[in-house]
Write a protein that binds this DNA or RNA. Structure first.
Lengths: 366, 366
DNA sequence: AACCTCTTTGGAAACGTTTCCATAGACACA
DNA sequence: TGTGTCTATGGAAACGTTTCCAAAGAGGTT
């Protein structure tokens, strides 16, 4: 196993000093044609490649950007990372990637590690941007950093959607369809401030558009026994006719759970998600949702960080607040007013009947 | 903006040599309690953190693994990366991630860059493992490396599924349903050897199970105007009743395209995918496909590389050849316009339940 | 021939670690 | 007191670059 070839070896073979080798290979400083030729030959013959470690040490720059996202399993984050990496690559930067698994502690640890690795900048999605140990450290280090999905903070830029407003508009849609009693299916607020902001926006919307305050169901990321929790929620709130889930994955899981409970979507229960995953239009029923642009968030974060690194003015903060759209879908409809008002409780038959129904219809088109 | 704190600053403040600081903070060598205390205090007061660059240079180890995948937009790769990163993180390694966008040249460039960054190991999905410049370089460098999705090569381990056999089994399914004339929808072979292997397996299966050689439609990754291409394909091959797509994304796109062409799936056209994306069970029709375990591939690759790094024996190569299953789905049925089979038999739906188009989901979760 | 200027060059310092090595002091034992 | 064994310590080298600086030589102008 041959020792790794350094600039010194090249210098030796080319019969010159290391400084000359560096100058030739980096095309900097002035060098004679003869020397250039000798160095090139030597480098080629030895199969020399620069070591970025030596370079990094000397230049205190790694051309590396750190990234922390909750998970790659959710396409929303995968897309953002893709956008981020595309843009960074074009600018000659590499991506150091870590997943926090929605855990604030791993998040902090991850950020620490990235800083120790001397990344030149950071693009982060944190559990809670308003209270993050990691962000605090980043702040005092003064290293270029852009948030993704999180709202911006006092000192940190962000590429994001206005969760509050978007969630509010979902309430408006529900109201327009005639729903009165709704629920919010949330990722634990501790692991996703987006979830909390959406809840708050939704609550605000429910109030303003004349609906009852939504029932809150906070669940873990893994979506463990969502079906049972949902059953409880529904049986305890017999009039509940619509659910807003804090992301599309949860919404899809809720549809599945509802099916197991023999609640028809959207006839018995309307469901709306958040994110606008592509797949939502191919499911049955198709998923009504807030459409966002994760890839743009990634790219935007890259732009922001790159700008900071080259001392350019940051992109217009206005442009970083990405727009959203509501997408209609088969999972949202008017409530069927079959049931009685107050006392007529719907006999919920929870886990006792695990049998799958043959859902008829099939003809609902999207 | 304060200069970055080094071990020297700590030494100065703690009134000792740098060697002592290093020993204390790394808990190596022997040190007096008094010195320990002074160093700890100094380090805390200065907010000292080690620089991994200095360490890397000196130890010629970066605790960093490089990864190249075609794209993160396909959940198959996102999952694999997630599995990879999870495992690596546990072992204290970071992930340097690059996407090749299915382009052999970017792939090579990416590998070069990662090597320059002195990654300790690599986990790669390459366009064509049998002919890859990047792999050649990796080979001569002798750096620990494991492929993902690609079949293993003479000198490189891999976590993979046997594409040939899996594709063959799809042919078998088609034949069992009574299809005679089929097509294969492929990613350009130049950008995905998986696609080629699946095609070959499918061809082999078609031959052995008494079907005509499949019509091949090779398309670009972006799936540009698939609808038109598919239209041509179908009009030129009027008897074609089933299509095998080289991945689920393509299959889903094909279903959409078929819908635009007013060809009903599966009545007019059966479609089967490859990968087993979760979402396939929630679409309408649900997607028949080969189910694989991308996350396991990622984890397996991590295990392999980590083993090599710690001089442990590599995991049993047997275990790295991951199993696959065929998943039934609404997108696959017997050809409808029973142009009578040559032998006059009515094609019977194979296996248990002949019911069409109901996703029997839920139990397939792995 | 003396003096400038300009190009080309190599030595050496610096970047932040770890670790080898030599030394100094402490202590025990004869 | 001399000798030997330990522990604790700091200086310095090494890792692979880049870049500052001084010097050497070429060539031109007086």
């Amino acid at each position: 196993m041959s020792r790794t070839i350094t600039i010194k070896d090249v210098a030796l073979r080319a019969n010159c000093g290391v400084a000359t080798v560096s100058r030739v290979l980096n095309d900097s400083g002035s060098t004679s044609p003869a020397a250039r030729q000798r160095v090139w030959d030597a480098a080629r013959e030895l199969g020399f490649e620069f070591s970025d470690i030596g370079r990094a040490l000397q230049s205190s720059t790694t051309r590396t950007i750190g990234c922390v996202v909750p998970s790659l399993a959710n396409p929303v984050f995968a897309d953002a990372v893709q956008g981020l990496q595309d843009r960074l690559q074009k600018a000659g930067y590499q991506l150091l990637l870590t997943c926090s698994n929605y855990n604030p502690d791993s998040e902090t640890a991850a950020i620490r590690t990235l800083l120790a690795k001397k990344v030149d900048g950071l693009a982060l999605t944190v559990c809670d941007s308003s209270d993050s140990e990691g962000l605090r450290i980043v702040g005092q280090r003064g290293i270029p950093c852009c948030l993704m999905f999180n709202q911006p903070t006092k000192d940190l830029a962000a590429c994001f959607v206005d969760n509050f407003s978007a969630a509010r508009s979902v309430a408006q849609e529900f109201a327009a369809y005639g729903h009165k009693s709704t629920g919010f299916l949330a990722l634990r607020f501790g692991s996703s401030d987006r979830s909390r902001q959406r809840f708050e926006g939704f609550v605000s919307g429910c109030r303003d558009f004349g609906m009852a305050p939504p029932v809150l169901l906070e669940i873990d990321e893994d979506g463990e026994n969502l079906s049972m929790l949902l059953a409880d929620m529904l049986s305890e709130n017999s009039k509940l006719s619509a659910i807003f889930a804090s992301n599309d994955f949860l919404a899809l899981a809720a549809i599945r759970a509802a099916r197991q409970l023999e609640r028809k979507v959207p006839d018995d229960l309307s469901i709306v998600g958040f994110d606008g995953l592509e797949i939502g239009v191919m499911t049955e029923p198709s998923l009504a949702t807030i459409v966002t642009r994760p890839k743009l968030m990634g790219r935007g974060a890259a732009e922001t960080v790159l700008a900071a690194l080259s001392d350019n003015p940051p992109p217009d903060p206005q442009d970083q607040n990405l727009s959203f759209n509501f997408r209609k879908g088969g999972s949202l409809a008017a409530p069927q007013k079959a049931e009685k008002n107050d006392d007529g409780k719907v006999p919920a038959s929870p886990s006792s009947s695990p049998t799958l129904s043959k859902s008829r219809d099939d003809k609902t088109k999207d």
